[in-house]
Design a protein around this nucleic acid. Structure first.
Lengths: 210, 210
DNA sequence: TGCAAAAAGTTGCAAATGCAACATTTGATA
DNA sequence: TATCAAATGTTGCATTTGCAACTTTTTGCA
């Protein structure tokens, strides 16, 4: 996975930080970052660690909007409406985040320097990757039954891992949140899939027979 | 909405076309573009017209993955796994699409020219907008009931249109496909919302009371 | 290695949803 | 303006799902 400052020297990285009025902030586990950021114009890049973007609606239900890891980007420009008051950005580990002022991408002075172009290209690559990730999630979420959501996700993994034997990158509880269904209902559906001989499954190891 | 070639002269646009091995293709209504594109390395930009990205699974169910309009971008880099065989890209009108070779963004020779930077910045702006759109759709799709999907979507529109009186940008049938629920079940839920005094609705005009 | 917390798995039941098969209204156009 | 297609709206019913309340298993770590 590409890093935002890949192929950029430390010196030039510091220059970029100046251009973008960037600052790196260290958060401990379990902090809501949103209280620390300028909601209107800044983009956060995760240097190390990981965060969850969680929305809580009026009756207290929590939905996992997004989960971000190293090199992922978040911010009001990307989430716009989503990043409203009901939203929290919670660190899952000790996490370092670099905030840059998005507006400066458009009117930077050092615009013709090599490292500026490298930076923008890196940014582009990261965003493309995130786009792809989001499209895959939408592909799952638009399926109407838990069964089809699971099968779609398994097929995606199978393609990525190049095999009919796949390993889930996270726990089943986590998978349920990711595909946005009730955990127990999901496990029940997995049981049915096993009974019908569509899959074999033991915790995170799954073999597809379809 | 930003155009990919905003602030770029016709002459420079032509240079960019050369750099990116770009070509513009005219499609009539109802064509599946996917047959005409290099699936691995090209990005399509819609100059005029609109397209639907539709997935058909084994039992013939069609899901609307995405619907793109002028200036939107699509391509294998973005959709990766989604753009597999079950996927079709169908023109809804007469549509002009410019294909560029994505790899050339990274190793272009004219990299320091003004218009190249402008181009990349335009691309960035367009992608940010699409990201935001996708996040909003995920926000809706992760809601577990039709009611919450509707309320979430209405709230988004209300924020965008700056009013509690909103106008749907498309038909109700279309809305059902967008939030990926059964149309009749959705209309039933809208009826309940009206009965409970949460909203007023007449075709595309909706007033929120919550 | 033992213990507490997280994850996995089960089940009954009420509520929500999809589906099918209609009737009615709206809108485009010949 | 007559006509046909698309969109809207309605309803019954079977299926799917979420939810709650459990038990059992796994895992991290003191």
């Amino acid at each position: 996975m590409k890093n935002l400052f890949e192929n950029i020297s430390l010196k030039n990285k510091e220059k970029l930080f100046k251009i973008f009025r960037a600052s790196t902030v260290k958060f401990t586990k379990g902090i809501n970052i949103i209280d620390y950021m300028d909601r209107t114009n800044s983009i956060g890049i995760i240097d190390t660690g990981s965060i969850d973007i969680i929305q809580t609606d009026y009756d207290g239900n929590e939905t996992l909007i997004d989960e971000l890891k190293e090199n992922d980007i978040f911010g009001s420009t990307i989430y716009s409406i989503v990043l409203s008051d009901e939203c929290s950005i919670i660190t899952k580990d000790n996490t370092n985040v670099t905030f840059i002022d998005y507006r400066e991408i458009e009117n930077a002075e050092f615009i013709k320097s090599d490292f500026y172009i490298t930076f923008v290209q890196n940014l582009l690559a990261i965003i493309f990757e995130q786009m792809s990730f989001k499209n895959k999630r939408i592909d799952i979420l638009t399926k109407k039954t838990i069964r089809n959501k699971l099968l779609t996700y398994f097929k995606q993994l199978s393609k990525e891992q190049g095999s009919k034997s796949i390993t889930l990158p996270f726990s089943l509880s986590h998978l349920a949140r990711f595909i946005s269904v009730d955990r127990s209902a999901m496990i029940r559906e997995i049981k049915y899939l096993k009974e019908e001989g569509m899959i074999d499954q033991k915790t995170k190891k799954i073999r597809l027979y379809y």
